[in-house]
Design a protein around this nucleic acid. Sequence first.
DNA 1: CACACAGGTTCAATGATCAGACCCATCTCG
DNA 2: CGAGATGGGTCTGATCATTGAACCTGTGTG
Lengths: 169, 169
Amino acid sequence: MLGSAYPQQDCSLAGALEIVGERWTLLIVRDAFYGVQRFSELQAHLDIPKAVLADRLEGLVGHGILARRPDPEHGGRHLYELTAAGRDLWPVIHSLVTWGNRHGRANSRLFRHAACDTELAADGSCPACALTPPPQDVITAPRPRHRGARREDPVAVALREPHRLLTRL
Amino acid sequence: MLGSAYPQQDCSLAGALEIVGERWTLLIVRDAFYGVQRFSELQAHLDIPKAVLADRLEGLVGHGILARRPDPEHGGRHLYELTAAGRDLWPVIHSLVTWGNRHGRANSRLFRHAACDTELAADGSCPACALTPPPQDVITAPRPRHRGARREDPVAVALREPHRLLTRL
DNA sequence: CACACAGGTTCAATGATCAGACCCATCTCG
DNA sequence: CGAGATGGGTCTGATCATTGAACCTGTGTG
């Protein structure tokens, strides 16, 4: 996003958009909720230029939304994980998915409360349990009979199975 | 947003971001919730280049988020109002404001349920009434003792008084 | 040691944004 | 009626972000 700032806007919406409002940023955060943690997986799943991905990851880490730590399995590599501030973005992601689902292209995925298997309401709450589950208690699965553009990258393939948010893919 | 599209992303989040993910777009929608309806008011309140504002308004009208109608008081002018699809963006706006409030710059405004005057919870629900009020039942007011960069444009001045969302400023 | 691979950085070309100048229709005041 | 002010734009050159491809480096593998 150009300038990456909204000067003179004394508003926390503008402040939030300066951090997560750039192109690609919320898609990266979405994948982080899905459990994607590697640079190469993000790049393959999002079709994003490496330079932009590196720039966005640096920004997200700098703003405390993602944490970058060494990969214990592979020397020299890193894993990116959501911080507490990043996990707080779940209502933003879910409300945008819900809106896009109703008014834009229909969604390929649905979100259920892990405890009772009920699909989440528009505001992210579980209608059966009358509470709003945190993302680690949400399971995402492909929508049945959905025929989207079939991606074949490892992340897209792994997401054909139901998967609990925030757990490593 | 460059390209204004995320090709190959079979996801309603990407679809939503293609519509409302461009720079300035969500700030325009926020002002529409505040009751701003004129081109000139938006331009003065947002400090946005006229060409970009015209482009964004055209996009929002084209995607059915704003409706453009002739201004009955002034010939040749227009008013922009949120459609039903646009009003459905309230959870997106509120969740972003709430997040920015906790993790970015503190907010200058707060949101209360008109029926009971209780401040809304993070998920947009009213803690006292145990329901999620629609935006037309929400009142926004400046945060007490807040000293932000004082804007002097007509919209900023009008918003120093408590104001019900979606009603004309 | 040669090689592949993850994870970047650098580069030229492209496309979006910006500030400011310009334009036209309507309203206001003399 | 005519002159100027205002709203709502469009147009233009300069600036800045994004893109895809090429290149670089450190680590594991055969």
